[in-house]
Design a binder for these strands. Sequence first.
DNA 1: CACGGGCTCACCCAAAAGCATGAATTTGTC
DNA 2: GACAAATTCATGCTTTTGGGTGAGCCCGTG
Lengths: 142, 142
Amino acid sequence: MKFGTILLYGIVLGLILVLPAYFQYQFMFMTYGVEWHIGFIALLFLVIGVWVGNQLWANRKLESAQNTPIVRSGNPGAPGLSQREFEVLCGIAEGLSNQEIASKMHVSLNTVKTHVANLYDKLDVKRRTQAVQVAKTLGLLS
Amino acid sequence: MKFGTILLYGIVLGLILVLPAYFQYQFMFMTYGVEWHIGFIALLFLVIGVWVGNQLWANRKLESAQNTPIVRSGNPGAPGLSQREFEVLCGIAEGLSNQEIASKMHVSLNTVKTHVANLYDKLDVKRRTQAVQVAKTLGLLS
DNA sequence: CACGGGCTCACCCAAAAGCATGAATTTGTC
DNA sequence: GACAAATTCATGCTTTTGGGTGAGCCCGTG
């Protein structure tokens, strides 16, 4: 997020905080009592919080969307996958189970599991679907 | 969103509104003065607002973020995926676990499992990686 | 030769995913 | 309002995945 945006938010929030504290003292505070005043402040800031939350989230979403292509162009083969690990990754991307990959590669299920585990470690993921997604953004898979 | 969730939110908000109004009068109010009290309430509800906003809009965010592909594809092969089924498909493609998808959509794990099962039936697949692969070849996902 | 990396396999355990089934609720349509 | 589709949730069960550990083999490098 840009610094100017943060500053803008800060100014808006500050104004909204200060203005009521300045004005309400003379009207609502004395007229309706402190309970209503506090309730008003609470409701006001609840709404502001919702708004701010949405603003923050929108920015985060934009950033993540922009990040994806950057990573792709920067890292061609960075994770350093070995031959077998890459073959296993391809099998995963095809939607095969570990057992099917094992049969295809003529190795045991345990071996595939080991490759898969090392693969996850290098790609820094925890699930096979995530591995596929990350591998595609890294340009490892088409 | 189910009724229980709304009720829960209401109770939490009500408690947070009432409790300070009850306790602070005896401590902070007298100790630090009304300005600090109001500031505290404002900050508290600002945070609550951010949280509530994220909870309320998370669903809509997911839909809007993932609606683009289905519009783009225009339902060619017509596997006839429902809205929710497509949303979980997007979650799967992102590499999320069923539990994470459930949290994101504000439904239970069991519900996600049901959607996933129906999804597999319609796409004629048996695993989530396969579902992603098939969905991409069908043009359902980019 | 010793060392490290890659490949292979095994075992155990926990978590996640998947399958089948039933059911309540909501929603859209006729 | 009736009906179908969609959505939600649950329960019990099996299979698949993932994590951790250990170990034997081969091969290239220092």
